[in-house]
């Protein structure tokens, strides 16, 4: 624990990956918000687009998961 510069960099890097979470949050929020505003304009078309909604959310969220993966790799594998 003491005075290892590589260790320090590792933990800083892990902390920085949390920023990726914010990006994923913006993405997922954008998908859900756009869906909702579209659905409120045209409620009859909303039901047919729920699958697209989930696919879009999955794509947006996958990138956040990638940043989590980077964090895990830094913590445990590097």
């Amino acid at each position: 624990m003491e005075g290892d510069i590589a260790e320090l960099g590792k933990y800083i890097g892990v902390g920085l990956t949390a920023i990726g979470m914010g990006g994923a949050a913006i993405g997922v929020g954008n998908v859900a918000g756009s869906y909702l505003s579209g659905a409120l304009r045209n409620p009859s078309a909303a039901a047919s687009q729920t699958a697209t909604l989930f696919i879009g959310m999955a794509f947006a969220e996958a990138l956040g998961i990638f940043s989590f993966l980077v964090a895990l790799l830094l913590m445990f594998a590097v």
Partner: peptide, 16 residues
């Protein structure tokens, strides 16, 4: 890649 990591990552993250 994204297909597999999405699933594993989501579930792993939640459990962790």
């Amino acid at each position: 890649v994204s297909h597999s990591i999405r699933l594993a990552g989501n579930i792993m993250a939640g459990h962790a």
